[in-house]
Amino acid sequence: MFSSVRPGWVLVTGAASGIGRATALAFADAGANLVLTDINAAALQEVFAEVQGRGSDCVARPADVSSDREMRELAAWVRAEISAPALDVLVNNAGIGYLGSFLDTPPEAWQRVLQVNLLGVVNGCRAFLPDMIRAGGKRRIVNVASLAGLVAAPNISAYAATKHAVVGLSESLSLELRLKGAQVGITTVCPGIINTQIAKVRANVATTIDDAQYERLTEYYTRQGANPEVVADAIVRAVRSGRELVLVGPFAKPLYYLRCFSRRLAQRLVLQDARSAGYV
């Protein structure tokens, strides 16, 4: 597995911005070699140059994580490009959001959120896990979920559903790998409020959300959200330590433990915060 002594190969999806970009740079600073992918080819090239500028070996190729075919093609390309039998770390990070009530979330929005947030993780694991198992040794898959995958909020039903699914997928897959005696571990990352563009893309907001509410929400993320570097540093530490669940960023730990103690109290706090944030 990746260590400070032997740099490994780390693949990051959604590497062109936000948590993905910060994670790529954090692993580069820690001495790892990087495979970068994102659907945004131009932005991906910029991050590729940044990683190379920090002295890491790096390869990059655009891919849509929601496409099983593209991810299998990416895996075949990676086999030919890197000087290793398999990845040491796979970071399934790519994701999108959607803001709107359940009845205001159209079928096409559900499909896209499911395809990227859930099937993106499925496709990434299916494409790279077999080689990671065959290569042997300690390796790790990092699935970036969300605090919304543990404690849901109103008006993000599609997003919360996919992130709950990622949490469940990660736990089930982890148990399967233990039964097989594989040395591939699973880390599930559940960030709280992080100041990225995921909640600020107007196209991913229901038409019933007016401009004033949208502006209030984006201001809330700017004001309350942690920098994505906070998540990136936590991911690097979790890979080194083998941690299975990472709670990072504002509200993540308090809400998780509060919900374990009292679901009703947690929901009351979520509703209160949702009103101030602009979710409702």
Score class of each variant (00 low, 15 high):
1 M>Q: 12
8 G>P: 04
9 W>Q: 02
14 G>S: 07
16 A>D: 03
17 S>C: 09
23 T>C: 08
25 L>C: 06
27 F>C: 05
27 F>E: 00
27 F>Y: 01
28 A>W: 07
35 V>T: 01
35 V>C: 11
44 L>E: 00
46 E>C: 04
53 G>R: 02
59 V>R: 10
65 V>E: 05
68 D>A: 15
69 R>T: 13
71 M>E: 04
73 E>H: 11
75 A>K: 00
76 A>G: 12
77 W>T: 08
77 W>H: 03
80 A>P: 05
81 E>Q: 15
81 E>R: 15
82 I>C: 01
84 A>L: 04
98 Y>M: 02
106 P>I: 09
110 W>Q: 01
113 V>T: 12
114 L>R: 11
117 N>H: 04
117 N>A: 09
122 V>I: 15
123 N>K: 09
123 N>W: 05
126 R>M: 13
126 R>F: 12
131 D>A: 15
137 G>N: 10
143 N>D: 06
152 A>D: 02
152 A>V: 10
154 P>W: 01
163 K>V: 09
165 A>V: 07
166 V>T: 08
166 V>C: 06
169 L>E: 08
172 S>C: 11
173 L>Y: 03
174 S>I: 02
175 L>G: 03
178 R>Y: 05
179 L>M: 11
181 G>M: 12
183 Q>C: 11
186 I>C: 07
187 T>S: 15
188 T>S: 12
203 A>D: 15
212 A>K: 13
213 Q>C: 10
218 T>W: 00
220 Y>S: 14
222 T>C: 09
227 N>L: 13
234 A>S: 14
235 I>L: 06
235 I>P: 07
248 V>D: 08
249 G>Q: 04
251 F>Q: 14
252 A>D: 11
262 S>K: 03
264 R>T: 15
267 Q>L: 07
268 R>K: 13
268 R>D: 11
273 D>H: 11
276 S>N: 14
279 Y>E: 00
280 V>W: 14
